[in-house]
Design a protein around this nucleic acid. Structure first.
Length: 664
DNA sequence: AGCACGCCGACT
DNA sequence: GTCGGCGTGCTC
């Protein structure tokens, strides 16, 4: 007997959609439905409607259809399906990540009514007045972009900080809008870089929607709805915006494409940049990638002829990119991490009226507290890590698990009271600079400081008004901010990355150093950048100094090729952790045993994670590497759905990370 | 994931 | 004698 069956993806870790009976409901793929699952009711998405004679599995009826309006568009459903396969993640959970919370929950008593669409300020009237004439260099890039054949293609714009990448985006977005299309602009963090949204608002007025995790659930759902109805010509969003429904999608811009925050680091571990490129390919629309420091992946795609490449070298106005110099710390006297020469340089800039930024990539006062008598280092009770001293708060805090305790008066081992902070964080450098320059306003900007709403905005305003003369900040400050009066950037310690075992550490160091270098000399005065180091002869640091990020990245690509690491191979990282000592590694050992001894896939591990114990869980990992992406994906597609039923799987937490960026 | 069932320790 | 710990099994 022939019957209709409906495949429904539910928010649970199943690798296949479940079957339900439609009854007399009219269903099409993409509709949200309420279905019974065990003894609860959940929201699922219809993925297919089939005629079937397979009666073997039990089948319950669909409770209700939840969409009064349009179903999830077919292109998005299909994109989510692709992503679920590529990242080996259950489709129902992928859809849950793609839909705003308001569409994932069962409706309450009140039926949500759609707001009537706002009248949009006409883009052209708002825009024309503020249109800047492109520089000759920008004009070359714009001509090249305008001359591309229609359809999919990726253009990477490698432009130094301040060279006007945003202006290029604005022109291409304008062209997309004029052709009645919608443009999607992805950015790493909206809260930290309000300038990008500002520039778009100046040009396109209320046509610009934003979408990010800081918005209320309600606002996100409304924006989702507006996008799906084609009411947003431009939407600027973070990672999850890659899943917004855009019926007239005409262009995708990915700003700061190298930025790690495009990769989700838990649950469904997707790369918004990579999904965006797949989406553009499927929708046959162009992609613009922009960065001062492109990822090695994108540069490799340029080298292979997959992406087109454009450069913007000139900075706007009179500003020149500073030539950084290294400051050899060996055998110099340091005061809270600051050398006398750096202090002299800073004093000179301050006396001349400039602003100075000290870049310290660590929060807190000091990354460790040491007993001077016996060598004890205050450890985190839950992790294989040292506690960070937050002196102003009088706390020792673990930056890995959040463990928080009072600063002890005595050594935990020998009871000595001679405890000294070692190393320096932002708070310590801030204190030192306050003592050195009591008459100047010194402020620290890091995530501890900017946690309060509006605090970051206030600080940024006081920087622009030159009220703040000296800034101490983490990489939070390295991104996107324009500080006209900033003439000196001092990097306190460039060496951390040079000691790291992570294969991407030097790439990230180069990106960070280049980004902070771009902070100096944005105004008329040429800037100065000083990098303190104990490794002044390190070849990669030297390479960066001589040939900039472009030279360093060429060298790093060559190194990756020789080592067989991405982008010259593909990685998937299986992680596991557990409360008992060996459970995670034993589990991954069983996983490894399931993988055929195929020459095309390297099994690296299982091994203990670089930080073996974290938040009281013992962690292990198994890295898979292959030259052949399809081969790796086929293996994972076969392997991953079995892992949950492996003996011991319930005793461990495990995850799969396709294209991992951090190997810890 | 969420929720049941089920079989062993300390309490009104 | 019960309340409740989390091990394991299942959800169309």
């Amino acid at each position: 007997m022939t019957e209709h069956r409906v495949k429904v993806a539910v928010p649970a870790p199943f690798f296949h959609a479940l079957d339900y009976l439609p009854g007399d409901l009219e269903l099409v793929p993409g509709m949200r439905v309420q279905v019974p699952l065990g003894r609860r009711q959940v929201v699922g998405v219809v993925t297919a409607v089939e005629r079937t004679i397979d009666d073997e599995i039990r089948c319950r009826p669909i409770t209700a259809v939840l969409d009064n309006g349009a179903p999830l568009p077919a292109d998005l459903l299909s994109l989510c399906n692709w992503a679920a396969d590529y990242y080996c993640h259950p489709l129902g959970e992928v859809l849950a990540a793609a839909l705003p919370a308001g569409l994932r929950k069962l409706p309450g008593k009140a039926i949500r009514r759609r707001k009537s669409p706002k009248a949009l300020r006409s883009p052209s009237s708002a825009g024309e007045a503020l249109q800047r004439a492109p520089t000759p260099e920008q004009a070359v890039v714009l001509d090249a972009l305008a001359g591309q054949p229609p359809g999919f293609g990726v253009d990477l714009i490698e432009g130094v900080t301040g060279s006007g990448k945003t202006e290029i985006y604005l022109h291409r977005v304008q062209a997309a809008i004029e052709a009645q299309g919608q443009a999607l602009v992805l950015t790493p963090e909206i809260g930290l870089t309000p300038q990008l949204v500002e520039r778009f608002r100046q040009r396109f007025g209320d046509g610009v929607a934003v979408f990010h995790s800081g918005m209320t659930e309600r606002a996100r759902t409304d924006t989702w709805q507006a996008c799906s109805e084609g009411r947003c010509p431009v939407v600027i969003g973070t990672r999850s915006a890659v899943f917004l429904p855009l019926p007239r999608l005409a262009l995708i811009v990915i700003d700061e494409e190298h930025d790690a925050s495009f990769k989700q680091q838990d649950g469904f571990r997707y790369s918004a940049r990579d999904i965006a490129i797949v989406r553009a390919q499927r929708a046959a629309v162009p992609v613009i990638l922009g960065s001062a420091t492109p990822s090695l992946e994108s540069l490799h795609n340029v080298a292979r002829g997959r992406y087109r490449h454009h450069r913007l070298n000139a900075r706007a106005g009179a500003a020149r990119m500073p030539q950084p110099r290294l400051l050899d710390l060996r055998n110099t006297k340091l005061r809270d991490g600051l050398s006398a020469e750096l202090i002299d340089t800073a004093s000179r800039h301050l006396a001349a009226g400039g602003q100075v930024l000290f870049f310290v990539n660590r929060r807190g006062y000091a990354p460790a507290l040491l007993c001077h008598e016996c060598g004890w280092l205050a450890p985190c009770p839950h992790c294989d890590a040292r506690l960070t001293l937050h002196r102003a708060r009088g706390r020792l805090i673990c930056h890995h698990c959040g463990s928080d305790s009072r600063v002890p008066l005595r050594c935990g081992q020998c009871s000595s009271t001679d405890l000294i902070p070692v190393g320096q964080g932002t708070e310590r450098v801030e204190d030192a600079l306050r003592a050195l320059y009591p008459d100047l306003r010194v402020e620290r900007i890091d995530s501890d400081r900017a946690r309060l709403a509006g605090e970051l905005d206030r600080l940024l305003a006081d920087i622009h008004s030159r009220d703040i003369r000296i800034l101490v900040g983490t990489q939070m400050l390295a991104k996107g901010h324009d500080f006209e009066g900033l003439t000196l950037v001092g990097v306190i310690d460039a060496d951390q990355a040079l000691y790291s075992s992570d294969f991407r550490a030097v790439e990230r160091m180069g990106q960070l150093l280049t980004q902070v270098t771009g902070r100096a000399g944005r105004g008329a005065t040429s800037g100065e950048v000083v990098v303190q180091t104990h490794q002044p002869d390190h070849p990669q640091l030297q390479r960066w100094l001589r040939d900039g990020y472009a030279g360093l990245s060429r060298e790093l690509l060559e190194e990756r090729r020789l080592m067989g690491f991405p982008p010259f191979s593909h990685l998937a990282l299986l992680r596991a952790d557990a409360l008992d000592a060996d459970a995670a590694q034993d589990f991954l050992q069983k996983v490894a045993a399931l993988i055929p001894g195929d020459r095309s896939i390297d099994k690296l591990g299982p091994v203990p994670a670089p930080m073996e114990r974290r938040a009281n869980r013992v962690r292990a990992q198994l890295l898979l590497r292959s030259q052949n992406r399809m081969g790796l994906q086929r293996l994972l597609a076969e392997l991953v759905p079995q892992l949950g039923s492996l003996p011991g799987a319930r005793r461990v937490r495990w995850s799969v990370d396709v294209d991992p960026i951090d190997l810890y």
